[in-house]
Amino acid sequence: MSAEVTFPLPAPYGSRTATVRYHRRGSGSPLLLLHGVGHHWQGWEPVLPALAERHEVIAVDLPGFGTSPGLPDGVPYDLTAAVPTLAAFCAALGLDRPHVAGNSLGGLLALGLGRAGAARSVTALAPAGFWSEAERRYAFAVLAYMRLGATLLPPSAVDALSRSAAGRTVLVSSIYARPGRRSPEGAAAETRALRGATGFAPTLAAGRRTRFTGDIAGVPVTIAWGTRDRVLLRRQGVRALREIPGARLVRLPGCGHVPMSDDPQLVARVILDSCAAAA
Rank of each mutant, 00 (worst) to 15 (best):
E135Q: 15
T169Q: 02
A160K: 15
T151W: 07
A144W: 00
W131T: 15
R147S: 03
A141K: 02
A128W: 04
A150N: 06
R163A: 13
S132H: 08
A165F: 00
A150T: 07
M146C: 11
A166M: 06
R147H: 10
P155I: 02
V142C: 07
V158E: 05
A141Y: 00
V170I: 13
T123D: 00
A134T: 13
A139D: 02
A128G: 09
A144N: 03
L148T: 15
A150M: 12
L171K: 12
R136D: 01
L148I: 12
W131V: 14
L171N: 08
T151I: 11
G129I: 13
L125P: 03
E135F: 11
R137T: 08
V170N: 02
A144L: 05
A128T: 12
S164Q: 02
A126N: 12
E135C: 13
A139G: 08
A124N: 11
L125T: 05
T169H: 08
A160H: 12
A144T: 07
T169V: 00
L152G: 04
E135D: 14
S164K: 07
M146E: 05
D159M: 07
S164N: 04
D159W: 08
L152P: 00
V142M: 08
L161D: 00
P154I: 15
S156K: 09
R147V: 01
R137L: 06
R147F: 00
V158L: 15
A160C: 04
R137Y: 01
P154D: 11
A165C: 01
P155N: 09
D159R: 15
L143Y: 04
P155F: 03
F140M: 13
A166D: 05
W131Y: 14
F130P: 05
E135A: 15
T123S: 05
V122Q: 03
R163W: 03
R137H: 04
P127L: 04
Y138K: 13
A157W: 09
G149W: 08
P127H: 06
S162C: 14
E133G: 07
W131C: 11
F130W: 11
A166Y: 01
L161G: 00
V142D: 00
G167R: 11
L153H: 00
A124H: 10
L152W: 10
S132R: 12
T151Y: 06
A141R: 07
V170Y: 05
A139P: 03
L152F: 11
Y145S: 15
V122I: 06
S132D: 06
G149N: 14
S162W: 11
L143K: 04
L153F: 05
S132K: 05
A160P: 04
G149A: 13
G167V: 14
A139M: 09
A144R: 12
L148K: 12
A160E: 10
V170P: 03
S162P: 11
V142F: 02
L153M: 07
P154W: 13
A128H: 02
G149S: 13
R137Q: 07
M146G: 02
S156Y: 01
S162T: 15
V158N: 10
E133K: 14
P155W: 05
A139W: 05
E133H: 10
L153I: 08
S156A: 12
Y145Q: 13
